[in-house]
Amino acid sequence: MSELRFREATPDDVALLRAWDEEPHVQAADPNDDWQWEEELERNPDWREQRIAEADGRPIGFMQIIDPAREDSHYWGECEPDLRALDIWIGPADALGKGYGTRMMTLAIDHCFATPGVRAILIDPLASNHRTRRFYERLRFIFVEERDFGEDHCAVYRLERERWEAR
């Protein structure tokens, strides 16, 4: 099994992330967002982490962890404190189906819950993406509601700390 690690995403990653944005599987999962990589990778607010996943040194995915109560766009609306929200995807198509997504999510969840006050994690796949929804359900996320975020109709899921720790 290859070594998987995260490193901070930097402005040097803009071309890589733009290329991944054009991949059909990324487009299908996130069709209406412009991440504004050039601007966002220059910012480092204390409520957000942006990471590149590498398998044996090769970039294979992206992860963002935010505090939804504190992030500046208010994407999640009014949120209780002590939550985290995740965005995560595999970039290159040849890295799909190799277990990287599960390993990335497990590392991300463990990272979130390493902060003692974090009570739960939110995630919002497209409601129509049944394969991804089953993936999150296998990771013990519980469906909360369907909700529109901009142009995207999503399924909101939540993972409570106690549920993760009891696995």
Rank of each mutant, 00 (worst) to 15 (best):
residue 125 P to R: 03
residue 102 T to V: 10
residue 106 T to S: 12
residue 85 A to D: 06
residue 143 F to C: 09
residue 59 P to F: 08
residue 144 V to W: 06
residue 144 V to L: 12
residue 74 H to S: 15
residue 80 E to K: 09
residue 99 G to R: 09
residue 112 C to K: 04
residue 80 E to F: 07
residue 64 Q to C: 09
residue 97 G to M: 06
residue 60 I to R: 01
residue 71 E to Q: 15
residue 60 I to E: 01
residue 101 G to E: 00
residue 137 E to T: 13
residue 75 Y to R: 09
residue 78 E to Q: 14
residue 122 L to E: 05
residue 67 D to T: 11
residue 140 R to G: 03
residue 74 H to I: 05
residue 139 L to P: 00
residue 106 T to G: 04
residue 66 I to T: 13
residue 84 R to K: 14
residue 86 L to N: 02
residue 112 C to R: 03
residue 94 D to Q: 13
residue 125 P to I: 05
residue 127 A to V: 03
residue 100 Y to K: 06
residue 63 M to A: 15
residue 129 N to E: 05
residue 137 E to P: 03
residue 103 R to T: 09
residue 114 A to C: 10
residue 100 Y to R: 05
residue 88 I to V: 15
residue 144 V to R: 14
residue 112 C to D: 08
residue 123 I to G: 00
residue 99 G to A: 09
residue 86 L to Q: 00
residue 133 R to S: 02
residue 100 Y to Q: 05
residue 137 E to L: 09
residue 113 F to M: 07
residue 60 I to K: 04
residue 118 V to E: 01
residue 75 Y to E: 09
residue 99 G to M: 08
residue 68 P to V: 13
residue 131 R to W: 01
residue 61 G to K: 03
residue 64 Q to M: 13
residue 62 F to S: 03
residue 110 D to H: 11
residue 86 L to D: 04
residue 124 D to C: 06
residue 131 R to S: 06
residue 107 L to C: 00
residue 107 L to M: 15
residue 100 Y to A: 08
residue 120 A to C: 02
residue 118 V to Y: 06
residue 78 E to G: 08
residue 121 I to G: 02
residue 139 L to N: 11
residue 90 I to M: 09
residue 73 S to F: 11
residue 91 G to P: 03
residue 124 D to P: 04
residue 133 R to G: 01
residue 134 R to Q: 12
residue 130 H to A: 11
residue 87 D to E: 14
residue 120 A to V: 04
residue 97 G to S: 07
residue 83 L to V: 07
residue 76 W to L: 06
residue 86 L to Y: 04
residue 102 T to A: 12
residue 76 W to G: 01
residue 120 A to I: 02
residue 83 L to I: 09
residue 92 P to Y: 07
residue 103 R to G: 03
residue 69 A to I: 04
residue 76 W to S: 02
residue 125 P to Q: 10
residue 141 F to M: 08
residue 105 M to T: 08
residue 116 P to C: 09
residue 73 S to I: 12
residue 106 T to V: 14
residue 123 I to L: 11
residue 81 P to F: 08
residue 67 D to Q: 10
residue 139 L to R: 05
residue 140 R to Y: 10
residue 87 D to C: 14
residue 86 L to S: 07
residue 101 G to M: 04
residue 65 I to H: 01
residue 117 G to E: 13
residue 138 R to S: 10
residue 77 G to A: 13
residue 142 I to S: 14
residue 96 L to T: 08
residue 93 A to K: 12
residue 133 R to F: 03
